[in-house]
Design a protein around this nucleic acid. Sequence first.
DNA 1: AGTTCAGTGATGCGT
DNA 2: ACGCATCGCTGAACT
Lengths: 213, 213
Amino acid sequence: VDIRVSKPFILLANCEVYYDGRAKSSLVPGDYLIIRKGDGTLLIHGGSKFNPLNYQPSGAILRKEGNKLISTRKRETITIIIHSIMWYREPVEWSENKIEISRTEYDLKLQIIRDIKELTGDRTIKEVTPEFKTPYGPIDVVAITETNLFHIIEVKRGKSTLSSCAQLERYLNYFKEINTPTKGWLMSPDISKGAVQYAANRSIEWRKVLFEV
Amino acid sequence: VDIRVSKPFILLANCEVYYDGRAKSSLVPGDYLIIRKGDGTLLIHGGSKFNPLNYQPSGAILRKEGNKLISTRKRETITIIIHSIMWYREPVEWSENKIEISRTEYDLKLQIIRDIKELTGDRTIKEVTPEFKTPYGPIDVVAITETNLFHIIEVKRGKSTLSSCAQLERYLNYFKEINTPTKGWLMSPDISKGAVQYAANRSIEWRKVLFEV
DNA sequence: AGTTCAGTGATGCGT
DNA sequence: ACGCATCGCTGAACT
């Protein structure tokens, strides 16, 4: 079988793989599934687990040297030494459509902005800004009251964790530096125990928010 | 062609895909690559990009209903409606070896622990603990001096970011609560501009550490 | 090109 | 099972 590096292909081969770049890895000889897409993406999958064993994201360039396949991208290199080919296929058509997805953090954010006064219990809110920019990163939602109190809201689509608390606190620190009074909020469907503890110690409040759809 | 849900297979098919679970998505009809592994992993790949369009991680259970493939796992469901099959393969052998990887954060941490006195410039360190446990999460490296000053060190294999700063500060907060004097450190090969700023404002120090191998 | 964050993140390790 | 941190994370949006 002749592998064409100019075409997308799907290949099951007995091979070994070496990677060098940000990290360095080697994969002992075995039968693996090798996928090469039109945009340069290279995936080497083993017989279990979600993640490919080795890979290169879109933009990689593939070449052939004897029984070696070499893929390079931004100073990273994958070398596949092929011992034998079980089968090889070039898809005639391979669609590039995207999925349409809902129940993302963005959707939850819209709900929160709509219900902001009920959720915070603050009827004096006069302005709500999503993606509020600060030098310490963009804040999911900022709601400003008539008396210029800033509600700083971090939204999570899943569980709020210690890491969410730290993220929120980082934003709060910015407003502390510019002497602006704030109230910090976590809003999400769930929260971890550690986050509850941490939030309590720093007067951060959590509001449970569920997806409506 | 007859798809056997009891075996791992690779399938190129014209199909449409619906997912419902934590989120909800749909994929318009097209030609996609469907991979089913022995551990239940299901991957549906389009003709570009690293990430699968739809997927289920290991543990999913697959069944067939007419021209539908239905995979379920923990209240999440993927439904593939198959319109036509381009080709279908069942790998006879598909290895489950793991890659051996180096230059991970763990490797960098070992270097840092070895060179801890040089990196901190503190010759009075008497004890170094990796994975130091606190209620606010485990700290990469803690080094304690003869006078009980705690060096709190957050290690990153790539670039230190604002998020790294916030993570470190969260650990520092714990020691503040128990009235223990600390010095906060970021150690990594690189650091982002925002992180430099944030660290400067909170007397966190950064040390550049490169992989030796 | 650099920075930041979401993700159906997944995965591994600890409790 | 939950909690937490890493990942060669990738991908997207914005500067």
